[in-house]
Amino acid sequence: MITVSGLTKRYGGFTAVDAVTFSCRPGRVTGFLGPNGAGKTTTMRVMCGLTPASAGEVTIGGHHFADIPNPGRHVGVLLDASAQHAGRTGREVLTIGARTMGLPDSRVDEMLALVGLSPEESKRRVRNYSLGMRQRLGIAHALLGDPSVLILDEPANGLDPAGIRWMRDLLRDFAARGGTVLLSSHLLNEVEQVADDMVLIGNGRIVAAGDKATLLASSHTGALVQGTDPAALTAALVAEGLAVRPAGEGLHVDATPLQVGTVAARHALVLTDLRPGGGGLESIFFELTADSSREAVPTLEGAPS
Rank of each mutant, 00 (worst) to 15 (best):
T262S: 07
R127V: 02
G280V: 03
L274A: 10
V58F: 11
A142S: 07
L159Y: 09
G76L: 09
A195S: 14
E190K: 07
V93T: 09
T42S: 05
G31V: 12
S292V: 09
L274S: 11
L183I: 12
R99D: 06
P298G: 00
A86C: 01
K123M: 14
G145E: 03
R165W: 08
T30H: 01
H74L: 09
L237A: 07
H64Q: 14
R275Q: 15
V29G: 02
G261L: 04
L200P: 03
G278S: 06
L281V: 02
V238T: 11
Q259Y: 10
E295Y: 15
K123G: 06
V238D: 08
G227P: 05
V244A: 10
P230M: 07
E295S: 13
H186K: 07
L171D: 02
A16M: 13
T51G: 00
L78W: 09
Y11S: 11
H141F: 12
W166V: 00
P35N: 12
R25K: 11
D254W: 09
L182W: 03
E154I: 12
P35W: 02
R10A: 14
I68C: 13
R177S: 11
L144Q: 03
G202I: 00
L79I: 08
P104S: 15
I201E: 07
L152F: 09
V191G: 08
A265V: 11
L112E: 04
S5E: 13
S148N: 10
R172Q: 11
V20E: 01
P69G: 10
G12M: 13
V244R: 06
S185G: 13
I151K: 06
T42P: 01
H74F: 09
D105C: 14
G278P: 05
A209M: 06
D173N: 10
A16K: 03
E192M: 04
L216H: 14
S122F: 11
G163Q: 11
P304H: 13
N70A: 15
A86D: 08
E282G: 07
V58A: 08
S106M: 06
D67V: 12
A113L: 08
G227V: 10
T41D: 05
T51P: 01
Q84L: 15
R165S: 03
G250P: 03
A38Q: 05
R73F: 04
